[in-house]
Simulated scan of single mutants.
Amino acid sequence: MPGTLRQVAELGYRSVETAGTHGRTAAEFRTVLDDLGLRATSGHADLDGGVDALIEDARALGNRQVVVPHAVFDTADGWRAFADELNEAGRKCRAAGLRFGYHNHDHEFAPVDGVLPYDVLRERTDRRFVHFELDLYWAVHAGQDVLALIDAERDRIRQLHVKDRAPDGEMADPGTGTLDFPAIFAHARSACEYIVEHDQPTDPLRTAGVGFDYLRAVRW
């Protein structure tokens, strides 16, 4: 893990989004980041261990934003109860000085009991406490117009997962597929964090390098 993060830092990254601490405590992981000049500005975490533990780890890591990365329910009521859970966690995170959000895949855009889970989350969560980390690949893969999604929740979409989509529907490194990132980025002016991601890269460090160079050129 330290060697991988060292290579990430050498590519030019100065911030990362964590997803677990890979056998270290949050404090130990933070030490590795600090030694390499990296900041874990955001972190993926689930609610299974409780909100207090989530906040404690986020503070140790130096996160400014904490995001629940995945949830699946087979009823609309299940999604509604989950939205209420997000609200409560978001209140506690806000009181602790953290932003709290939810990250989508494609299944949130498939109807459950006649409603879209994504709409349930939009309508039932409190915008003061819960934001969205919009995964661009998964939204497009689900047939969504991401510009319309941004328009609908412009002040709540504070993070974008930047992963591209090949013509055959597979994931691709940023800038090598079919997504019009310049148009999306211009539209998402309020988004404050752009995160390079690929769920199953054949060469993770190459993906990180391609993504960094692409974002630096197209966004900044």
Rank of each mutant, 00 (worst) to 15 (best):
R64L: 10
V115L: 09
H107P: 05
D48S: 15
R128S: 13
P69Q: 04
D48R: 15
A166H: 07
E133L: 07
R128D: 14
H107W: 10
K92W: 04
D173V: 06
F82W: 15
R128M: 05
D48N: 15
G169Q: 01
D168L: 07
R80W: 08
A110Q: 14
D126L: 06
E88P: 01
G78Q: 03
F82N: 01
V130D: 14
D135Q: 10
A83H: 06
H161F: 06
A148N: 09
A76K: 07
R64F: 12
R94I: 02
Y118L: 04
D164K: 09
E153V: 03
A172S: 15
D77T: 10
D168S: 05
V112N: 03
D168Q: 05
T75V: 04
R80Q: 06
F73H: 10
D106R: 13
A53K: 07
H103D: 08
A53R: 07
R99N: 15
E85L: 05
A60M: 10
A142V: 05
A110C: 11
R124V: 12
L54V: 12
L134I: 13
H131P: 04
E153N: 08
L160W: 15
A152Y: 03
G49N: 09
L149I: 02
K92S: 08
A142P: 09
N104S: 08
H131K: 10
A60R: 12
D84P: 11
D151F: 01
D135A: 09
R64W: 07
G78A: 02
A148P: 09
L134P: 15
E85Y: 05
Q159K: 12
R99G: 15
A142I: 06
A76W: 08
I150V: 14
D164G: 02
D77L: 13
R165I: 14
A60T: 09
A53L: 07
A71M: 08
V68E: 02
G101A: 06
A142W: 04
L98W: 05
T125P: 07
A58I: 04
D168H: 08
H105M: 05
H141A: 15
R154A: 11
Y102P: 05
P111K: 09
I55H: 01
R80M: 00
R59E: 12
V140T: 04
R94T: 04
Q144E: 12
R124I: 03
E170T: 13
A60P: 06
D77G: 13
A81E: 14
D77N: 13
V115D: 07
W138L: 01
D74P: 05
